[in-house]
Structure formats: C-alpha cells, structure tokens
Simulated assay, not measured.
Amino acid sequence: MFFNLQELGQWLGVTAYEIWIWLTSLAVFTVLLSLKLDGNMDFSWWVVFSPLFIGDALNAYFVVTVFIRMYIAKRVRPASLRTLWSLLQLVLVFLFEYLLCWKLTDSTQFEYSEVMAPLFILSQFIMIRACQLH
C-alpha cells in the first residue's frame, strides 16, 4: 500500500539524499509557516519560503555534482537523462514556490490556477515516467 524508498526513488527519479533534503527543508518551512500564521513572528513570506529555496539550491548542486561524476565515469547518456529529469523537476517546483510566494505577498494578480500550473505539469511528467517504468 505504501511505497518504500526504492520505489519512490524510481517513480520520482531522485535519490534518498534528495528526498532527505526535501523533507528537511519542508520541516523547517512548516515551523516558519506556523510561526507566521500564529502571529508570533513577523516574517515576510520570502523568509518563510527561504528553506524551500535553499533546499532546491542544494538539490541542484547535488544534481550537477552527480552529472560531473557520471560524465567522468564515461556514462554520458544516463548522466544527461538523469540531469535533464532532475533539473526539470527542480525548475517546476521552484517556479511553483516562487509564484506562490509572489501571490501571497499580494504583489501580483495571478490566479491560483496559474500558480499551480507548474505542479500540474510536473504531475503529468511523473505520470508519464510511472507508465514507462511498468
């Protein structure tokens, strides 16, 4: 019923380290979000979303490092495909976070459907990947 780490890694095309970075940044984001919504701290939305942006940057750094190591090992095609997939995921997630943060600061007139568009696209790509695996 639940996915184990190996299945989740195959479906999403990420490693356990990348999942750990996502979960850590999400935990810190959740704490900052609860502090902001409670009114205990007067953070801007950019400060609240900063752990997610930092997590995306760390994952991008990891992806580039893995690409370089695979390229040096003469595995050019798998390195290129993995890098392309991971960077596509990172760009779409970052774009969603950025648009949501921009929407919450009331500096734009975006609708929520426009803000959620990167997640819709990402879900389509994950569906396609899942169909290719099985």
Results as ranks from 00 to 15, higher is better:
Ala130Gly: 04
Phe3His: 11
Thr65Cys: 07
Thr105Ala: 09
Thr105Arg: 09
Leu100Ile: 03
Ser44Glu: 12
Ser86Pro: 00
Gly39Trp: 08
Ile54Asn: 02
Ser25Leu: 05
Ser80Val: 12
Arg129Glu: 04
Phe3Leu: 15
Met116Lys: 06
Trp20Met: 09
Phe2Glu: 07
Phe125Asn: 06
Ile121Gln: 05
Val115Phe: 03
Tyr71Ser: 11
Gln124Phe: 15
Leu23Pro: 00
Phe96Arg: 03
Leu32Phe: 15
Trp102Ala: 11
Ser34Tyr: 12
Met1Ile: 11
Ala117Cys: 03
Gly13Lys: 01
Ala27Met: 10
Trp85Gln: 05
Asn40Arg: 13
Trp102Arg: 12
Glu18Lys: 00
Glu18Cys: 00
Pro51Ala: 11
Val115Trp: 01
Tyr98Lys: 09
Asp106Ile: 02
Ile72Leu: 07
Leu52Gln: 06
Gly9Pro: 00
Ala27Cys: 10
Asn59Ile: 13
Trp85Ala: 06
Ala73Pro: 01
His134Gln: 15
Lys103Phe: 14
Met127Asn: 11
Ile128Phe: 10
Gly55Lys: 00
Leu5Val: 10
Leu104Pro: 01
His134Glu: 14
Thr108Leu: 06
Leu33Gly: 07
Ile121Lys: 04
Trp11Phe: 12
Phe49Asn: 01
Thr65Phe: 13
Gln109Gly: 11
Val47Ser: 06
Ala57Leu: 15
Tyr71Lys: 04
Met116Pro: 00
Gln124Tyr: 14
Trp102Phe: 12
Ser86Gly: 03
Phe3Trp: 14
Phe49Cys: 03
Asn4Arg: 02
Gly55Cys: 04
Tyr71Arg: 04
Gly9Tyr: 00
Leu122Gln: 09
Val66Leu: 13
Ser25Asn: 07
Val64Arg: 10
Phe62Asp: 13
Thr24Arg: 08
Ala130Trp: 10
Trp85His: 06
Ser50Asp: 03
Pro78Tyr: 04
Lys103Gln: 12
Ala16Asp: 13
Leu35Ala: 11
Phe2Ile: 06
Leu35Met: 14
Tyr17Ile: 14
Cys101Lys: 00
Leu84Tyr: 05
Ile128Met: 13
Ser80His: 08
Pro78Met: 09
Thr105Met: 13
Leu87Ile: 10
Arg82Glu: 13
Phe94Asp: 12
Val93Gly: 05
Asp56Cys: 12
Val14Tyr: 01
Cys131Phe: 15
Val63Glu: 05
Leu37Ala: 08
Trp85Leu: 11
Leu104Trp: 04
Leu99Glu: 09
Glu114Tyr: 01
Ile68Gln: 12
Val63Tyr: 01
Phe53Lys: 03
Gly9Asp: 00
Arg69Phe: 04
Gly39Ile: 11
Phe110Val: 10
Ile21Arg: 00
Ala79Ser: 12
Val63Leu: 09
Pro78Asn: 08
Cys101Gln: 05
Ala57Arg: 02
Pro118Ser: 02
Leu58Ile: 08
Leu32Arg: 06
Gln89Gly: 04
Leu100Lys: 03
Met41Ala: 13
Val91Asn: 02
Leu84Ile: 07
Leu122His: 00
Trp11Gly: 02
Leu92Met: 07
Leu8Gln: 05
Gln132Cys: 10
Leu26Trp: 08
Phe67Glu: 02
Leu23Ala: 12
Gln124Ala: 15
Thr15Val: 04
Ser80Asn: 10
Ser80Met: 14
